[in-house]
Simulated assay, not measured.
Amino acid sequence: MRISSAALLALGLSACAPEAGAPQGETIACAIGPGAEFADECVLERRALEEGREMLVIHHPGGGFRRFVMERSTLLPLDGAEPLVMVALDAASGIEFTVAGDRYRLPPAGEPE
Score class of each variant (00 low, 15 high):
Gly64Val: 01
Gly25Cys: 04
Leu75Gln: 06
Pro112Asn: 12
Ala31Ser: 13
Ala29Gly: 14
Gly101Val: 00
Val43Lys: 13
His59Ser: 07
Asp102Met: 02
Ile58Asp: 09
Leu49Ser: 13
Ala109His: 10
Leu106Gln: 00
Ala48Pro: 12
Leu106Ala: 00
Gly63Val: 01
Ile3Met: 09
Val69Trp: 04
Ala15Val: 06
Gly12Glu: 06
Ala109Gln: 15
Ile28Gln: 06
Val99Pro: 07
Asp90Gln: 02
Ile95Lys: 08
Glu54Pro: 00
Pro77Ser: 04
Gln24Phe: 03
Glu51Asn: 12
Gly25Asp: 05
Glu54His: 03
Asp102Asn: 05
Leu106Gly: 03
Leu84Gly: 02
Leu11Ala: 14
Phe38Trp: 03
Glu113Gly: 09
Gly94Tyr: 01
Glu51Pro: 11
Arg66Ala: 14
Glu51Ser: 13
Ser14Ala: 14
Leu89Tyr: 14
Thr98Ile: 05
Arg103Tyr: 00
Asp79Tyr: 00
Ala39Lys: 14
Ala91Lys: 10
Phe38Ser: 11
Pro77Gln: 06
Phe97Pro: 01
Arg67Asn: 10
Leu49Thr: 12
Gly64Trp: 10
Ala91Pro: 08
Asp79Phe: 00
Arg72Cys: 09
Leu8His: 08
Ala10Ser: 07
Ile28Arg: 02
Ala100Phe: 01
Leu8Asn: 12
Ala20Phe: 01
Leu11Trp: 13
Asp40Met: 08
Ala39Trp: 01
Gln24Ser: 15
Glu45Gln: 15
Cys30Ser: 08
Glu51Met: 13
Cys42Tyr: 07
Met86His: 02
Leu9Gln: 06
Cys42Glu: 11
Leu9Glu: 14
Val87Pro: 04
Pro108Ile: 05
Met55Thr: 12
Arg72Tyr: 10
Glu96Cys: 08
Pro77Tyr: 01
Ile95Pro: 05
Gln24Arg: 12
Gly63Thr: 00
Glu50Ala: 13
Ala39Leu: 10
Ala7Thr: 08
Gly62Gln: 14
Leu44Val: 04
Gly33Asp: 03
Thr27His: 13
Arg105Ala: 08
Val43His: 10
Ala31Trp: 05
Arg47Gly: 08
Ala36Trp: 02
Phe65Trp: 12
Pro34Lys: 14
Asp40Cys: 06
Ser93Lys: 09
Phe97Asn: 01
Pro61Gly: 04
Ala6Glu: 14
Ala100Tyr: 01
Pro112Tyr: 06
Ala31Cys: 03
